[in-house]
Design a protein around this nucleic acid. Structure first.
Length: 566
RNA sequence: CGGGGUGUAGCCUAGUGGCUAAGGCGCCUGCUUUGGGAGCAGGAGACCGCCGGUUCGAGUCCGGCCACCCCGACCA
């Protein structure tokens, strides 16, 4: 490619709102442009990176048997009725009607569409396993759009779905995808951390995320450096401490204006771990009350897991009042409602907690589980804190901010049962396949690579992802130099960006660094006299002189060899 | 969705209520220059986000709307 024919110029600066350095380089280099909040165009250079990412991912997914297909971005809502997820997903999913008044959605994920596709080809156990993937847009009307490509409304995803005859077949297959994911991220030059994660509205039993530590990530990981335990904070387990005393008598106290744990703790002069926090959540089948200690947060993932159904959100004020509760002073004591009460283990074990009085401005001191309030549902529903110890080895835990790049879910037979996808077993009986689903966000991956792999001058693309492998330029007006440049370009033009601009060498050097092209080849009349060319390595910032007669051979070798910036 | 911030030329910015809205980058023309974002000369490019108000006079003050950016959103 000749630079003069390339669309998308480099920029000297971006406005200071852009906090993410990697994203700033992507903008400055002319890789991407924003077209509105959370919406992006990929320019020729950026699109080449995307293409390379896809090629890399195809190689790894097809190496474990994946077949590439494509299902539509738009789904009839009917599909989502059948799985029941139309009621779980909420406002992330854009719904609309076509001109005939048919209800459609922009798919935020494609489990339903794949189940529907597989239905056409699945009759017998002999048709299993099936493993298919696609690169397809997802649309999620995100409430939290941020950091350029990291969190967008519309994004390309590699999503893969596997269908198995049995749970054990799925269990055998699952680690293969896990290993393929590790290879993919490694080839991208990223040190990812696999971690156990929640399942959200994807459903299913077990899930893992692949995350890269990053300050611009939205996830918190809990890790035990001693034994290697690692999980998303939303599902992480740990040894929680609790305090016990001799139970005292239940006592009412006036607590005007204390509707948060912070206020209550300050007002009473009592540490937060001696308070109990009572909250009401919505689920599809109704409301549920949860009690955790004042210094803890409810994990909706853990609560969902315990209930066996997705916890959607906090109940709103009106719902709470309608049930006869006083917002800010919720109490698990004297529950007249039939709503299930789930009590965190730490609350059940602690003594003399302060709980809401279910009366404006009143709390109750010395509440004790088993005496003042009771429930058969005692479970771990609170998030652990970094100061808690590892459940497996007792070691100290640490909290890591990280960015999720991919995930893998064991969906079991949730979708096949709800959507009626079945096959005939050897014995003639009907059976439902066990499913896995496996995603990687392509744009986010590109953003994460730019974020992780850059220096002051620009991006450091791994060689197999770089838009071009060679940046070729000549210095001076010498005709012989130009001819030699042209002759090299001719042989390597598909993998070379030839900077044929009438710019000073400095400008070209700067842009070559910014674009992160791994090798820069410079010919000049000065060097030309010695019949040598300069070969510069973007990662090491070292250059060496190669004899002109050897340069093509050297370039061929460099084309064959994949290199990471580290 | 909540809080905060910002909207001035393609990009980044300056601009006490007062003349014809300023600078840098980029762009166009010509010449010079060719090893780290070159020099000289000339030139084009702005309904100052939109609507309304205050005022003799608004880019500037007030109100509303819109867009974008940052932060927060489970602690009722």
């Amino acid at each position: 490619m000749k630079y003069t024919q390339l669309f998308g110029k480099t920029l000297r600066n971006v406005h200071h709102g852009v906090k993410s350095e990697g994203f700033a380089f992507l903008l400055r280099g002319g890789f991407v442009r924003s077209n509105g909040n959370g919406l992006f165009s990929f320019l020729p250079l950026g699109n080449r990176v995307i293409r390379n990412l896809k090629r890399l991912i195809r190689e790894e997914i097809e190496a474990i048997g994946g077949l590439e297909v494509s299902v539509p971005l738009i789904n009839p809502i009917e599909l989502w009725h059948r799985s029941g997820r139309d009621r779980l997903v909420g406002n992330d999913m854009v719904r609309f009607q076509d001109r005939h008044g048919h209800n459609m959605v922009l798919a935020p994920s494609h489990e339903e569409a794949f189940v529907d596709l597989v239905r056409m080809g699945l009759r017998s156990y002999r048709d299993l396993p099936a493993f298919m993937y696609q690169f397809q847009l997802k649309f999620r009307d995100e409430e939290r759009i941020r950091n350029g490509l990291i969190r967008t409304k519309e994004f390309m995803m590699k999503d893969a779905y596997s269908f198995h005859r049995s749970a054990s077949d799925l269990n055998i297959f699952f680690p293969k995808v896990f290993a393929a994911y590790e290879r993919i991220f490694k080839r991208c030059g990223l040190d990812v951390l696999p971690a156990e994660s929640g399942v959200g509205y994807m459903g299913g039993e077990k899930a893992f995320e692949f995350l890269v530590p990053s300050s611009i990530g939205d996830d918190l990981l809990i890790e035990c450096p001693q034994c290697g335990y690692r999980a998303n904070k939303s599902v992480a387990m740990g040894l929680k401490d609790f305090h016990t005393d001799t139970p005292l008598e239940l006592e009412s106290v006036d607590t005007p204006g204390c509707t948060s744990m912070e206020e209550l703790s300050n007002f009473l002069g009592v540490e937060k771990h001696k308070l109990a926090k009572t909250m009401i959540f919505k689920t599809m089948s109704g409301l549920v009350m949860a009690v955790v200690r004042g210094d803890h947060e409810v994990s909706k993932e853990k609560l969902s897991r315990f209930l066996g159904e997705l916890v959607l959100e906090k109940a709103d004020k009106q719902d709470v009042e309608q049930l006869g509760f006083v917002p800010g002073y919720l109490s698990p004591i004297d529950l007249s409602s039939s709503m299930p009460l789930v009590v965190d283990g730490t609350v059940a074990k602690s003594t003399n907690l302060v709980v809401g009085g279910n009366e404006e401005g009143v709390h109750l001191k010395n509440a004790n589980f088993g005496r003042d309030f009771e429930s058969p549902h005692v479970a771990d529903i609170s998030m652990i804190r970094p100061e808690n110890k590892c459940l497996q080895c007792g070691g100290s835990l640490q909290e890591i901010r990280a960015l999720e790049l991919g995930n893998i879910f064991k969906l079991e037979d949730f979708y096949s049962r709800s959507m009626g996808l079945y096959f005939q077993e050897e014995n003639g009986k009907k059976a439902y396949p066990f499913m896995g689903s496996y995603g990687i966000g392509i744009g986010r991956l590109m953003g994460a690579i730019a974020e992780q792999l850059h220096d002051k001058r620009g991006i450091l693309w791994p060689s197999e992802l770089a838009p071009y492998r060679f940046f070729l330029m000549g210095i001076g007006k010498s005709d012989t130099v130009r001819q030699k440049v042209d002759s090299i370009y001719e042989k390597f033009h598909t993998d070379t960006l030839l900077d044929d601009r009438k710019e000073s060498p400095g400008v070209k050097f700067q842009d070559a660094e910014l674009l992160g092209i791994p090798y820069r080849i410079v010919l000049s009349s000065k060097r030309n006299q010695e019949d040598t060319v300069e070969l510069y390595n973007r990662y090491t910032r070292q250059s060496r002189l190669v004899k002109l007669e050897d340069i093509e051979k050297t370039m061929k070798e460099l084309q064959e060899k994949e290199v990471l910036p580290k």
